[in-house]
Design a protein around this nucleic acid. Structure first.
Ligand SMILES: [Zn+2]
Length: 208
DNA sequence: CGCGTTTGACCCGCGC
DNA sequence: GCGCGGGTCAAACGCG
């Protein structure tokens, strides 16, 4: 099926009336996270690791205040490069956070791995607790493959960005340890912006 | 018609 | 060489 799960998600939350597209803006933060950095090499990524951690948490907390759909359900978010080592995890209860804007990132761990063969693109994986298989992140994806992975009853889906000239791929599978989690792996950097996602932020832009 | 999904075939690297 | 696992292609199909 397509990426139109808006009804499902919007049913779970109260979208702010000012926000024309809650589901998309929610994931925009994800994209801001690595798009703004635009690191082409893992070394860059690693170099900025500390700052990233900040930006990361920040992105997920403050701008999300209105639309913490997924993150509220989150028990953990994992960023990882080529699945191994160098992990810095932070267990934090954001209880002191503005309860109105409570975005609960209880167990937010970040994993970074230096890869030997850092193929041109970057690779980032989000581990998200959700029952939904397909999550609209603001980009248009075209599914191009599905595979059954070994030792995992759940299939793995392959998507590619529909925008011409953009080679970003993403791959979605359920965590075999805990099938209530979905691991979404992005590979590459978009050569464009999302059409809709910035509307919300533009409306926030003020000149006071 | 245009575009997205489905799904088996195909490809490729690797270990035996 | 062969089988296997992971990744991709593409023809057929579905839908607005
Ligand atoms: Zn793209």
């Amino acid at each position: 099926m397509s990426t139109s799960l808006a009804p499902t998600i919007t049913g779970m939350i109260q979208p702010p009336s000012s926000n024309p597209n809650p589901t998309i803006t929610n994931f925009l933060t994800n994209h801001n996270y690595y798009d703004d950095l635009g690191f082409d090499q893992l070394s860059d990524y690693l170099a900025f690791e500390d700052q990233l951690g900040d930006a990361y948490t920040c992105n997920f907390t403050s701008p999300l205040s209105n639309i913490p759909v997924i993150l509220q359900e989150n028990k953990g978010v994992i960023l990882q490069e080529n699945n191994t080592s160098t992990e810095s995890s932070l267990n934090s209860n954001h209880d002191d956070m503005d309860s109105n804007h409570a975005v609960q990132i209880n167990n937010c761990s970040k994993r970074v791995k230096r890869s030997e063969k850092s193929d041109n693109g970057s690779r980032i994986a989000f581990r998200i607790k959700t029952e939904l298989e397909i999550l609209d992140d603001g980009y248009k994806w075209r599914k191009y493959g599905k595979k059954m992975v070994k030792n995992n009853p759940n299939p793995r889906n392959y998507y590619k960005c529909s925008t011409v000239g953009c080679q970003v791929k993403k791959r979605v599978e359920r965590d075999l340890k805990d099938s209530s989690y979905v691991i979404t792996t992005y590979e590459g950097i978009h050569s464009h912006e999302t059409p809709h996602a910035f509307v919300y932020y533009n409306t926030q832009m003020q000149f006071d």
